[in-house]
């Protein structure tokens, strides 16, 4: 009996940002990554990653939606009946996605136009629903919020890695469409258009043309499947406990 009271006192004095909270933020970046370990949110990782800039915007939007839907679901978790929980969760998610979409439309119209379909598809992004079912329905609001932020960042990190590879090899540019657009590699006769100009007007290159050709496979969504496969391979080489034993 005495033990139980001591435990309760300790629980009340739990710090606002202790070890457990920190773990919630860092776990999804490595040990419990939403894409490479939990296998959630693959569809959008395949669809939006052909350019870097839209994927960064997408990552921020998803992080906000996951964090706040986790928070609200966790606040409401004791009032939601089990039989209709999905509909309640979807209403929360759909509302938040609409808010994010309107904010984006108001402040950055160009990128909204580019992403419009995919922003709507955050509703059906399994990361959001997956975290609500797996975490927010059983945990306190503050922790659920942190879990949402962590998972959003873990998802965004992978998205950015994939999109950098795809844009660099598929189009020869980085951050195209953003104010910080970079032209890395490509054939061009204009001086300084690309960092690495692959067209040469004299010598051997005169007959061959450009020695570098954009890899068209990288533009297709199929490429991101291979890239994610490669990321998983590298990730699990360094993180042995994730290796599939069965």
């Amino acid at each position: 009996m005495a033990e139980a009271t001591v435990k309760e006192v300790v629980q009340e004095k739990e710090p606002l940002f202790g070890k457990k909270e920190k773990k919630l933020l860092t776990d999804p970046l490595n040990d419990n990554n939403p894409i490479t370990v939990q296998v959630l949110g693959i569809c959008s990782a395949l669809a939006v990653t052909s350019l870097v800039y839209p994927s960064i915007v997408m990552a921020i939007a998803v992080t906000l939606v996951v964090a706040f839907s986790n928070l609200f679901t966790s606040l409401l978790r004791t009032y939601i009946p089990k039989q209709v929980r999905m509909i309640v969760q979807l209403v929360i998610i759909a509302t938040l996605v609409t808010v994010v979409e309107l904010i984006l439309k108001a402040f950055n119209y160009a990128i909204w136009k580019q992403l419009s379909v995919f922003i709507g598809l955050i509703i059906t992004n399994c990361i959001v629903m997956g975290r609500l079912e797996a975490f927010a329905m059983a945990n306190k609001p503050w922790r659920s919020f942190l879990d949402g932020i962590g998972n959003g960042l873990g998802y965004g990190g992978i998205l950015v890695i994939i999109s950098i590879i795809r844009e660099l090899f598929g189009k020869g540019t980085l951050f195209a469409g953003s104010p910080a657009a970079l032209n890395i590699i490509g054939p061009s006769n204009e001086i300084n258009k690309y960092w690495i100009n692959t067209a040469s007007s004299s010598g051997f290159g005169h007959w061959v043309g450009s020695w570098y050709f954009n890899n068209n496979l990288m533009v297709l969504s199929t490429a991101s499947l291979f890239i994610i496969g490669g990321i998983i391979w590298i990730h699990r080489t360094y993180n042995k406990k994730l290796v599939d034993i069965s």
Binding site: A223, L225, F226, G229, I232, R236, V243, S246
Partner: peptide, 20 residues
Amino acid sequence: VPAPLRGLGMAFILTGLMGI
């Protein structure tokens, strides 16, 4: 299959091949 690629990693690559 190389141990780190077993399971999920291989599934991704197989899906890519099936997609092609």
